[in-house]
Nucleic acid binder design. Structure first.
Length: 119
DNA sequence: AAGCTGACTATGG
DNA sequence: GCCATAGCCAGCT
């Protein structure tokens, strides 16, 4: 159980998303919707995706490859440098992927609403 | 300025 | 499970 500390600087939507994503442990994954729900934008999963899209420009590193859609599909792979980047990173963390689908997705799913608390 | 586009999801059949 | 539909909303045409 980790804790996210809120400050004036990071309480906007994008930064909040990044703070959550940065808490995802190695070898674990979560979904856009889970993050959206957690930060209070339950029906705006698309915005989480948009935040990931913008994250590449950041100087800080955000492990966007650990965020997939609700079925464990690597829907964001085309937004990385090359087609295999996302899958390679996940496999390097011990996950098995077949046809863009994370195997045993449920076993690796990390739910922020169960693992995190916001101060 | 109206309409389109998605790294999405919940729902109903 | 699959499929279609409908919300979603920032940014781009």
């Amino acid at each position: 159980m980790s804790t996210i500390k809120l400050s004036e600087k990071n309480k906007d939507f994008f930064s909040l998303v990044y703070e959550v994503v940065k808490q995802i442990p190695d070898g674990r994954v979560t979904s856009y919707g889970a993050i959206a729900t957690y930060i209070g934008m339950a029906r705006s999963a698309r915005m989480v995706g948009w935040a990931m899209n913008a994250s590449h420009a950041l100087s800080e590193s955000v492990p966007a490859h650990r965020v997939v859609n609700r079925s464990g599909l690597l829907t964001g792979k085309h937004h990385f440098g090359n087609e295999n980047e996302m899958q390679s990173r996940l496999e390097a963390e011990g996950l098995k992927i077949e046809d863009d689908q994370i195997l045993n997705f449920q076993d690796h799913f990390w739910d922020p609403s169960k693992e995190l608390t916001i101060e």
